[in-house]
Simulated assay, not measured.
Amino acid sequence: MIHELPTDEGDGAMPLLFGRVLDSEGGARTIDWEAVQAWRPGAEGEVLWVHLLRTHPGVQQWLEDHLAIPRPTAELLTSDDTRPRALREGSTLVATLRGINFNPGAEPEDMLSMQLWSDGARVVTLRRLPQQTPRIICDEIDAGTGPVDAGSLVTALTEDLIDRMSHAIIDMNDAINEMEDETIDTGTDAMLDKIATIRRNCLALKRHMSPQHEALLAIANHAPAWFEDHDRREIAETIARLRRYIDDLDISKESAIVLQDDIRARVAASTQRTQNMLTIVAGIFLPLSFITGLLGINVGDIPLATPGSHGFWIIVAMCLGIFAVELLIARKLKWF
């Protein structure tokens, strides 16, 4: 289970959620929005990272004017079209990535998008809803153990997004294992509802993770020159993990289907046994009901109806005899 972590902050008055200038040694200094406007690469290896609220008014215009980003790309970075993708524009890398939504009340399939742009000297990340990944990487930088350049920052953000997907998959696998150990008496409808939810989550996650796999491949294969060989190797490892997670999703989905079929088969078998028992009981009492009904009709000449004939006890004995014979026949036929 994921512990709740602080998400990226912001004061709401400007689009900057936080900003850092990486010092190429794993640390950074904080930079405010005013300083961002005037920032230029200074000491060798310095990289500017700004994390922005993409829904803030004026963000698209700032991207176009201050960073000279083409309008179509700026629109992509600030739009609600969040399908994972990655592309190269000259010496810049543009990507849209998605991660698990760990905000309170969110479901795993409610994934969050993070847009990313970098030219090697500057990295801009944008989001709409609070996310944990940028804040975690920022905390590592503040502790002096973070990425050292733009390439390693991109790979660190990507790795954390992908690693967090594993927690949702593990939670689903644990839920399936727990249900496999439960009995049908714990509530069939509740178990089937849980399984249906897991199957929906698996489908939703795979729907987002498959294009993310293609996006990471595009980064690994087509990133600009400032994205170094060791960064490509890190992305390759992340791609391999993502493939395993996709395979795990398939396994979880198949396990959920098998469990669902097993529960339904057990319910059907239980229902069939109940129906068989009711049929046997009805078959046993049908002749007895016929006899008592026949002797109970209100007409003359009913046998054993005269006083002193002990008709009642004779009929009771006859019914008990028929009942005993029926039980023996049912036992011989292995009806129960």
Rank of each mutant, 00 (worst) to 15 (best):
T82I: 04
I2L: 07
T7Y: 12
D262H: 14
G90Q: 08
T292I: 05
V267W: 05
G146A: 05
D149Q: 00
V281W: 13
T292H: 14
A150Y: 06
D185Y: 06
H208V: 10
I195M: 01
R20C: 05
L67S: 04
P224E: 07
D301E: 10
H213T: 03
L161P: 02
L48F: 04
E180Q: 12
G120N: 04
A43F: 10
G26W: 01
S289C: 05
L17K: 11
Q272W: 06
E44L: 13
A106V: 03
L63G: 08
I195N: 02
D149P: 02
D193F: 03
G151S: 14
S210W: 14
K334I: 00
I69A: 14
D160Q: 03
A35S: 13
G293V: 00
G296W: 14
R135M: 01
I176P: 04
T188G: 11
P108H: 09
G283R: 06
S210M: 08
L242N: 13
V94N: 02
Q212K: 05
D11A: 10
M277D: 12
L259I: 01
I280S: 01
D261Q: 09
N101R: 00
R164Q: 09
E326I: 05
P104E: 14
P134I: 05
D247T: 03
I2V: 13
A330L: 04
A240E: 12
L116A: 02
R122N: 08
I314G: 04
T155A: 15
M165R: 02
I2N: 10
E214W: 10
L77E: 08
R199Q: 15
G187V: 09
M277P: 09
F290Q: 11
I284E: 02
L22W: 06
F312A: 12
H3C: 03
A106Y: 10
T30G: 05
R40N: 09
G146C: 10
N276A: 12
E178P: 04
L161A: 00
I31V: 14
P147N: 03
A86F: 08
L288H: 05
R266C: 08
L157D: 05
L67R: 13
I322G: 00
G308F: 10
R243I: 08
E4W: 09
G19N: 11
R243S: 07
R85V: 00
S113D: 03
L76F: 13
I219H: 03
P303A: 11
I31R: 01
I257A: 13
E178Q: 14
A225M: 01
D248G: 06
D142P: 00
D11E: 06
G90S: 07
A305K: 12
R233K: 09
I315V: 15
N173R: 14
W33H: 15
M209Q: 09
P108Q: 02
D189A: 11
T55V: 06
L77T: 01
I257M: 14
R40A: 13
D119C: 07
F312M: 11
Q272C: 00
F102D: 07
M209G: 05
T82E: 08
A305C: 12
R20Q: 12
P307K: 15
A86R: 07
